[in-house]
Nucleic acid binder design. Structure first.
Length: 768
DNA sequence: GGTGGTAGACTTTTT
DNA sequence: GTCTACCACC
C-alpha cells in the first residue's frame, strides 16, 4: 500500500484532462492506478459527485470504494462507484420519468423474465414451438448489442424464432410496463433513450466531469455508447483494461472498444502497464506461454523483477471425486504445515457444476467451503417467495409476484381461480391484486363474466386481507427486517415450513438469513444517506415514506447485487468460485480444477460462433485463472468425470501442453491417487478408432492432442429421425460424441414453410 | 384444488 | 445425478 508507483503508473495517475487509455496486463496494479487517479482528482478539487467510476462487478465496486476510503478518507464515500447496471438504475430513478418510467420501478431478473415469457408463450399457444429460454437468449443477445430482436436474426421476416418473437416481444414489453418493471437489458437501453431525450440528454452529458471505467475490454457496444455520452462534454474519460482478459464475448463484450479506442478519441493518451507485481515468475511464464498462443491480441508481455517461485504442481486424479479429495487433502497438508492459511486460498473451476464434489471433500477435510455463486442464495425458492411478497408490497400491480405468492404457502387458491381473476383484471384493466380486491369486496362477479364460488372468494379475501395487513406494517414505520418477519409469519410460511419434515428447517434458516440481509442493508444505507444526499444524480426525494423507500432500494439491491458476501469469520473458510467470478481478484494459492479438454477449454459447439474465436476466449480464461495466483498454483484434472450421472473419459487440457515443462514440479502423482481404474474398455471402444484424439495417454510426459468432431454415430446430416414430442425430422448437423452428442434437427413447424430447428441431445432421438 | 409420480432438461461463463 | 414442470389421480 505504501509502495510507490512506477513511472507508467504515475503517468496514468497524473494525467490531466482528456481521454486516457491504460492497457494493463494482469497483476500490474490496474485498480491501484484507478484508485490513485481518483484520489488525485479529489485532491485537485474535483467534487466527489462529479466523478463516475464504473466497474464490472459489484464486488469490484465495493473493493474500490474501500481502497479509496483508506487512501483519502470519507470524502470517497460521497462518490458513486457502481456497475453499469447499478449506475443505470440510479440514473433511471432520478431521470426516468422523462421517458415515462415511474420512479419506483422494479427490476426483473432473469428468472422473472423467464417466468413472464413462459406465461406469455402459453397464452399465445406457442408452448410446443418455442421455449422461453430461446426467446430470453435472443432478447439478451439483441439487448447487449443494441439490436432490435425482431430484425437481429435473419433478413426480412427473420428466421424460425422471429415469427414468435413478433408476437411475444410486444406483449412482454406491455407486461413490463404494467408491472413497472425493467429487465437487465432494459436498464441500459432506457438510459440510452434518456441520452437522446432533448432535455435530459444534455444534462446527463454534463453530469460528471470525469468518467472512469474499469475492465473496459468487457464493455459491450451499448455500454460504450453510454460511456461516450456521459463523457461527451468534458471528454475526461479514463478506461482501463486488458484485451487478454476479455472473457465475456459471449454476452456481447467488444474488446474492440478498448483496442480501437483511438478511433473515437484520436487524442487519447495511451499508457501500457506490463510490470507484474503479483505473481512469481514461474506463474507468469506459464500464463504468458498460454496466452502467447492466441493470434488475435495486441502483443503485451508481462514481466517481473522477481525470479523463481515454487513450481506448478499438476494433480492427475482418477475421477471428479478423487480430484476433489486430492485437492482437499493437499490443501489440508499445506495448512497443517503452515504453508498458507485457508483464507489465502481459492479453488477455481470452469463450470458451477464442479463445485459440489469439491465442497463435500473440503468438508471432509475439516474446511468450511464458501462458494461464491452469483445468485445461489437468492435463487432459493423460499427466498424468491419472500421477495415476491415484498415486490407485491412495493407495487400492487406486480402481477408476476402476485401469481407467485397467491397460493404460497398453499391456501386453496388454484389455477382456476387465478384464471378468472385474470379475466377480471383484463376487463377492468387493473392488476391481479386489484381484481381480487374488487371481486371479494362484492363489487360483484359481473366483471368480464367471471364468477367465483363462495369458497374461492373467501380464500381470496383472506389473501387480500393478508396483503392489506402487510401494507399496514410497511407504512407503520416498521423496518425492512420487521416487515419481512411479518411476511413470513402472517403468510403462514413459517408454519408451513415447520410442518415440513424434509428440509423445512434449512429453508427456514435461509429466510432468517434473508432477514439479516435486509437488516444489514438498512444499517448500511442509513450510513450512506447523508453522503448520497449530496450526490448529483440523487434529487431531493426524501418525501417518500422511509419504509417504502427502503423497500424499493432493497429490491434493487437484491436484483442487481445479490448478497454482499457475508463476513466469513469462521476459522477454516476456503473460497470456491468460477474463473469468471475470479477476474480482478488475487490469492496466494490457487487450485485450478478440471483441466480437461472439453471442460476447459469448453469446446462446446455453438451455432454461429467461430470455433477459433471461442478457443481463444477459453485461452484468455486460462490466462485469467493462472494469473490469479500470487505464489502457488496447482492444476488438477480427472480421468473420469461424472456428467449427467454418466462417467465420461476425459483427456488432459491442451492448455497443460502450452505451459513450458520447466514450470512444473517433477512429474509426480498425488500422494494418494484414488483407486480408480483406467477408463473402462467399453468406453474406449465406443470412441472411433480413427480418432487421433486418443493418442494421448495418461502416462505420456509430453502428450500430443488432436481433436476432431465426428459425425460418425449415425446422425449424419440428411438422416431422418424421430423425437417423442416433435415427431419426425431431418438432421442438419451433429456435434460431439457419446452422451455429449447434440444433434441439430429440423422439424416441420406450425407454418410448414418455416421449419423449426432444434438442438437435441442424441439420446432422445431414434433413427428412422 | 392438492398430491405424488415421472419425463425431460440440465452443465458454460453473469449483470 | 438432481431439479422442474406437468399429468393423472385423489
Amino acid at each position: 500500500m505504501v509502495a510507490s508507483l512506477n513511472r507508467e503508473q504515475q503517468a496514468a495517475v497524473e494525467h490531466g484532462d482528456g481521454p486516457l487509455l491504460v492497457l494493463a496486463g494482469a497483476g500490474t496494479g490496474k485498480t491501484r492506478v484507478l484508485v490513485h487517479r481518483i484520489a488525485r482528482l479529489l485532491e485537485s478539487g474535483v467534487a466527489p459527485w462529479e466523478i463516475l467510476a464504473v466497474t464490472f462487478t459489484n464486488k469490484a465496486a465495493r473493493e474500490m470504494r474501500e481502497r479509496l476510503v483508506a487512501l483519502c478518507g470519507p470524502v470517497a464515500e460521497r462518490m458513486w462507484i457502481g456497475t453499469f447496471h447499478a449506475t443505470c438504475a440510479r440514473l433511471l430513478r432520478r431521470w426516468g420519468e422523462a421517458i415515462g418510467l415511474p420512479r419506483d420501478f422494479l427490476i426483473f431478473d432473469d428468472d422473472d423474465q423467464q417466468k413472464a415469457l413462459t406465461a406469455l408463450i402459453k397464452e399465445a399457444g406457442f408452448e410446443d414451438q418455442i421455449s422461453a429460454r430461446t426467446i430470453a437468449a435472443r432478447l439478451d443477445y439483441a439487448g447487449n448489442r443494441g439490436l432490435d430482436p425482431l430484425t437481429a436474426f435473419g433478413g426480412p421476416g427473420g428466421d424460425y424464432a422471429t415469427q414468435f418473437l413478433e408476437v411475444i416481444v410486444p406483449r412482454y414489453r406491455e407486461r413490463l410496463a404494467r408491472e413497472k418493471a425493467v429487465d437487465f437489458a432494459g436498464l441500459i437501453l432506457k438510459v440510452l433513450e434518456l441520452c437522446r431525450h432533448p432535455e435530459v440528454g444534455p444534462r446527463l452529458a454534463g453530469l460528471y466531469r470525469h468518467v472512469l471505467v474499469d475492465e473496459f475490454q468487457d464493455t459491450n457496444l451499448v455500454q460504450y455508447e453510454l460511456v461516450r455520452h456521459l463523457s461527451s462534454i468534458t471528454r475526461n474519460l479514463t478506461v482501463v483494461g486488458d484485451d487478454d482478459q476479455s472473457i465475456y464475448a459471449w454476452r456481447g463484450a467488444e474488446p474492440r472498444n478498448l483496442l480501437d479506442f483511438d478511433r473515437d478519441f484520436p487524442d487519447v493518451v495511451e499508457i501500457k502497464l506490463e510490470e507484474n507485481y503479483r505473481s512469481t515468475s514461474v506463474i507468469l511464464d506459464a500464463a504468458n506461454a498460454v496466452i502467447g498462443k492466441n493470434l488475435d491480441r495486441r502483443g503485451k508481455a508481462l514481466w517481473t523483477e522477481r525470479g523463481g517461485g515454487d513450481p506448478i504442481e499438476y494433480l492427475a486424479c482418477g475421477d471428479d471425486r478423487g480430484e476433489a479429495e486430492t485437492v482437499a487433502r493437499t490443501l489440508r497438508g499445506l495448512v497443517d504445515d503452515g504453508a498458507c492459511s485457508p483464507g489465502d486460498v481459492c479453488i477455481l473451476y470452469r463450470t458451477n457444476a464442479q463445485s459440489r464434489p469439491l465442497e463435500e471433500q473440503l468438508r471432509r477435510f475439516r474446511f468450511e467451503p464458501k462458494v461464491v455463486g452469483a445468485t445461489a442464495f437468492f435463487d432459493r425458492k423460499e427466498v424468491k417467495d419472500a421477495i415476491a411478497y415484498l415486490r407485491l408490497l412495493a407495487n400492487p400491480d406486480a402481477d408476476s409476484a402476485f401469481e407467485r405468492v397467491v397460493n404460497v404457502p398453499p391456501r386453496g387458491i388454484g389455477a382456476a381461480t387465478v384464471d378468472k381473476l385474470r379475466e377480471v383484471a383484463r376487463a377492468r384493466d387493473v392488476g391481479l391484486l386489484a381484481a381480487a380486491r374488487a371481486t371479494v369486496r362484492g363489487h360483484g362477479p359481473a366483471f368480464g363474466g367471471a364468477s367465483l364460488g363462495a369458497a374461492a372468494r373467501k380464500k381470496l379475501g383472506a389473501f387480500v386481507d393478508l396483503m392489506d395487513g402487510l401494507a399496514g406494517v410497511r407504512d407503520g414505520g416498521a423496518t425492512l427486517a420487521e416487515l419481512l418477519i411479518q411476511v413470513v409469519e402472517r403468510s403462514g410460511y413459517r408454519e408451513f415450513l415447520e410442518h415440513d419434515d424434509g428440509d423445512g428447517a434449512d429453508r427456514m434458516r435461509n429466510l432468517a438469513e434473508l432477514v439479516n440481509v435486509a437488516s444489514d442493508y438498512q444499517a448500511e444505507t442509513a450510513d450512506d444517506e447523508p453522503g448520497e444526499g449530496g450526490d448529483a444524480a440523487d434529487g431531493a426525494d426524501g418525501a417518500d415514506a422511509p419504509a417504502a423507500r427502503g423497500l424499493a432500494g432493497f429490491l434493487e439491491r437484491v436484483a442487481l447485487v445479490g448478497a454482499a458476501d457475508g463476513a466469513d469469520g469462521r476459522g477454516e473458510t476456503v473460497t470456491l468460485m468460477t474463473i469468471h467470478m475470479a477476474k480482478g481478484l488475487e490469492f496466494e494459492v490457487v487450485f485450478l480444477c478440471g483441466m480437461e479438454d472439453g471442460l476447459f477449454p469448453s469446446l462446446r459447439p455453438r451455432e454461429e460462433t467461430d470455433e477459433q474465436a471461442a478457443l481463444e476466449e477459453e485461452r484468455r480464461l486460462a490466462y485469467v485463472a493462472i494469473t490469479r495466483a500470487k505464489r502457488v498454483l496447482y492444476l488438477a484434472s480427472a480421468r473420469l468425470r461424472r456428467v449427467w450421472g454418466e462417467l465420461k473419459a476425459q483427456m488432459p487440457s491442451r492448455f497443460l501442453d502450452d505451459i513450458p515443462p520447466g514450470c512444473f514440479a517433477l512429474p509426480r502423482r498425488p500422494a494418494a491417487t484414488p483407486a480408480i481404474p483406467r477408463p473402462p474398455a467399453p468406453r474406449r471402444a465406443a470412441r472411433p478408432a480413427r480418432d487421433e484424439f486418443d493418442q494421448r495417454t495418461w502416462d505420456d510426459d509430453v502428450p500430443v492432442i488432436r481433436h476432431d468432431d465426428d459425425e460418425a454415430s449415425g446422425f449424419a446430416p440428411g438422416v431422418t429421425v424421430r423425437h417423442q414430442a416433435f415427431g419426425r425430422g431431418r438432421v442438419v448437423a451433429a456435434h460431439g460424441t457419446g452422451s455429449q452428442q447434440r444433434v441439430v434437427v429440423e422439424f416441420p413447424g406450425i407454418d410448414p414453410t418455416v421449419p423449426m430447428t432444434k438442438t437435441i441431445d442424441a439420446r432422445w432421438l431414434a433413427r428412422e
